[in-house]
Design a protein around this nucleic acid. Sequence first.
DNA 1: ATATCTGCAAATAATTTGCAGCACA
DNA 2: TGTGCTGCAAATTATTTGCAGATAT
Lengths: 143, 143
Amino acid sequence: MGMATPRNYRLTSQRQTLLGLIRQQEGHLDAIELYRRAQELQPRISLSTVYRAMHFFKQLGLIEEHRFEQDHLHYEAKPKVEHCHLICLRCGRISEFQSPQTDKLKKEVEHEKNFKVASIQIHLQGYCDQCQGKQFFEVDNRE
Amino acid sequence: MGMATPRNYRLTSQRQTLLGLIRQQEGHLDAIELYRRAQELQPRISLSTVYRAMHFFKQLGLIEEHRFEQDHLHYEAKPKVEHCHLICLRCGRISEFQSPQTDKLKKEVEHEKNFKVASIQIHLQGYCDQCQGKQFFEVDNRE
DNA sequence: ATATCTGCAAATAATTTGCAGCACA
DNA sequence: TGTGCTGCAAATTATTTGCAGATAT
């Protein structure tokens, strides 16, 4: 809200730690997991710092934020090649998929709508190979 | 959590009202707005009922849930034709875009990964026609 | 030297849930 | 006649924020 945009940014040890963690990770992490891992390297780091750093990295275009089926965010380093996430509505597993359609879609949007795309999120929800046939009303698949 | 999946569903007046509202709406609505509109038709309806109905409709595949840049969900009737949402990071406006790539992508996923797609969400964040050139670090565009 | 960042604790706000009564089938 | 649904109030939980002290540049 009242938070003015700073004119200079600092590369603090916390930010280095967090960016390192998120970059060395294949795929995505949530705030709590990042916090746990960061604590092993910097015991006094706080959860707010994790959230603030994620917000900061996002503004810089270094990471992407995803909200899957759950109620909290996941973060991942911005990949070289765009990919889709396939989210299984039964087992909750999330896998990735790359397709040339993604890039075509982006170009279409840029040309036809004159919309400058900064990041893309493509989520396909459904039933994975192993979970097919069991899909109806499996509302509560936890525990 | 412990909520067992019911064997029979009931078409209550609340559910009729809510499904009616969401279907007559072009585009998406959030829980509060749905609640306001529903109250005009059924003054004693509660916000929990709205949330519970959305969860129910989602399980039935009648609606889609979207989390845009904000911290709360939006709901919309499942459309006949898939579309993408373009979200402007500066003005916050959300527009829609249809493309044949969407359907191709879906078919690819179904064939190559044997993943049964139930719903798709494609969000492109970036800068719209009017907001281009003003994009850098416009962190706080509210008020 | 000073603007920016951090940790801590407290606040915020969306969504979920327990429960007791109501109502559809 | 009983399972499923609702309203209400209270709980939960992710995320944000205020502030005072620390730190990068």
